[in-house]
């Protein structure tokens, strides 16, 4: 049997090769065939999920909610010491210096990364802004969000912090972060489908011990973190509850 593996499309493009290398490691470690399919956006990912074409996924808690509660996916691991945070950004030369300076009617550039959008909307609340009094401009990726700000086509941008940090120095020099979330408890996670159940324990063991050897450690480092932590069902359910409070 061949399994399908995917990664939510909010990782920096520079990490594409690292995920393919990870998949090679995964297949050797578990001695199973796994096909890695990377999607260009969340819409494509959702279509794949709807078609039950995903067995293994590394994704954000927003996507995880539906997978766990509607499709019976099981949590495996989370990256150690890394949480999902969002940054609200304006152009470097903008008159806006704090969230409270933003007024109704502002144009917001954003991607379809729903956990980032939810966290970002929460950070706009002190300015009494909500989806009914702002204009949204959907973009395919965070570089395009940055370009919207730089070209004055949008007033505000929502960024996944990890993606913002990976923007080039040239781009970042033309941007000004207003506020960065410090939530700490919302994290990406590795999940597997009920179809993959027989390999769940082996995958969990492989991931939590991955950084014990030099080769595994290098692969994890190339993905942008240091190690994997075991993720329990209850920890996942609670993270989903937290996401529900932000809806």
């Amino acid at each position: 049997m061949k399994y399908n593996f995917t990664v939510s499309p909010d990782f920096p493009p520079e990490r594409i090769a690292s995920w393919y290398i990870f998949n090679t490691w995964l297949q050797k470690k578990l001695d199973i065939a796994v096909h890695l399919e990377l999607h260009n956006n969340f819409k494509e990912l959702q279509a794949s999920i709807d078609n039950d074409a995903v067995d293994i996924i590394y994704t954000n808690p927003f996507e995880a909610a539906g997978l766990v509660r509607d499709k019976g996916f099981m949590p495996v691991a989370t990256p150690q010491g890394i949480s999902d945070e969002a940054v609200i950004v304006v152009a470097a030369d903008s008159d806006v210096d704090k969230v409270e300076d933003l007024k109704p009617g502002v144009k917001v550039a954003l991607t379809d990364d729903q956990d980032v959008n939810m966290i970002s909307m929460m950070m706009l609340e002190p300015a009494e802004l909500n989806k009914d009094n702002i204009e949204l401009s959907n973009q395919d990726n965070y570089v395009l969000v940055a370009k919207q700000l730089m070209n004055k086509k949008a007033d505000v941008g929502f960024f996944y912090k990890a993606a913002y940090d990976e923007l080039s120095g040239m781009i970042k020099s033309q941007l000004k972060p207003l506020v960065t979330s410090e939530i700490s408890v919302i994290k990406h996670m590795f999940l597997v489908s009920p179809r993959f159940k027989e390999h769940h324990a082996a995958l969990q063991e492989a991931l939590v011990t991955m950084s014990d050897d030099d080769k595994g450690k290098q692969i994890v480092t190339d993905l942008g973190f240091e190690a994997w932590d075991k993720q329990t069902q209850e920890e996942t359910e609670f993270m989903i509850d937290l996401m529900d409070t932000l809806k």
């Binding site: 929460m122 609340e125 002190p126 937290l242 409070t245």
Partner: peptide, 22 residues
Amino acid sequence: TVIPNVRNGEVVGYASVRRKPA
């Protein structure tokens, strides 16, 4: 915002999230 934590159809506790108000 406070929500019930429902597990297997039963409330096992409550989660509370508080953020900066306007």
